[in-house]
Simulated scan of single mutants.
Amino acid sequence: MLTGGCHCGAVRYEAGGEPFERALCHCELCRKTTGAPAVAWFTVREADLTMSGEPVRYASSDHAERTFCGRCGTQISFRDAAYADRIDITTASLDDPEAAPPVEQIWVRSRPSWMASAHTLPDDLERRPLKA
């Protein structure tokens, strides 16, 4: 069972079954709806997902809907009308994001050029405190 939810805890979910897709998406819609350069998703059957709380629904295109927490803004899911029996869940919203890591990248033609070399950026392991 995969469990997760939003940042503030108002929306929670449990996803049963084994995820059958796990991808890092670079499409423009994912980037714009999250403000992130890419979004990691895992896919489960709609029937295997239980969600509590009241996620807000947003039609991000004429065929797709996303849900997010109305309080803290965390995006939780993506549903495409062409695949009504399945739902994509944001991997970073998992309690343990290591439980369903991406195994492929999709929409790479939309990827910002600087993302191709992001793995070469130096790590700041000290987590410097912010200056007042």
Rank of each mutant, 00 (worst) to 15 (best):
R109C: 12
T90D: 03
H63T: 15
L49M: 12
T90V: 10
R71E: 15
T50L: 13
R45M: 04
V103T: 14
Y58C: 05
V103F: 04
R66T: 03
V103C: 10
R57E: 11
Q105N: 15
R86W: 09
T67A: 02
A47R: 14
F68P: 05
E65G: 00
D88E: 12
P101D: 02
D48P: 10
D48I: 09
A99L: 05
V103Y: 08
D80C: 13
V108F: 03
P97H: 03
H63G: 05
D62R: 12
G73F: 07
V44I: 13
Q105A: 04
R66A: 04
S110N: 11
D95A: 14
A99E: 06
R109L: 09
P102D: 07
W107T: 07
G73H: 05
Q105G: 12
D85L: 05
P55T: 08
L94S: 01
A64D: 05
L49V: 03
R66D: 06
F78M: 08
I87V: 15
A59D: 15
P97G: 03
P101Y: 06
E65R: 14
G70R: 00
D96V: 09
S60F: 02
P101V: 02
S52I: 02
R86S: 15
T91N: 09
P55W: 01
A100K: 11
C72V: 07
D80Y: 08
W107L: 13
I87G: 06
I76Y: 02
T50G: 03
S61I: 00
R109M: 13
W107C: 10
R109W: 10
E46L: 15
G70L: 01
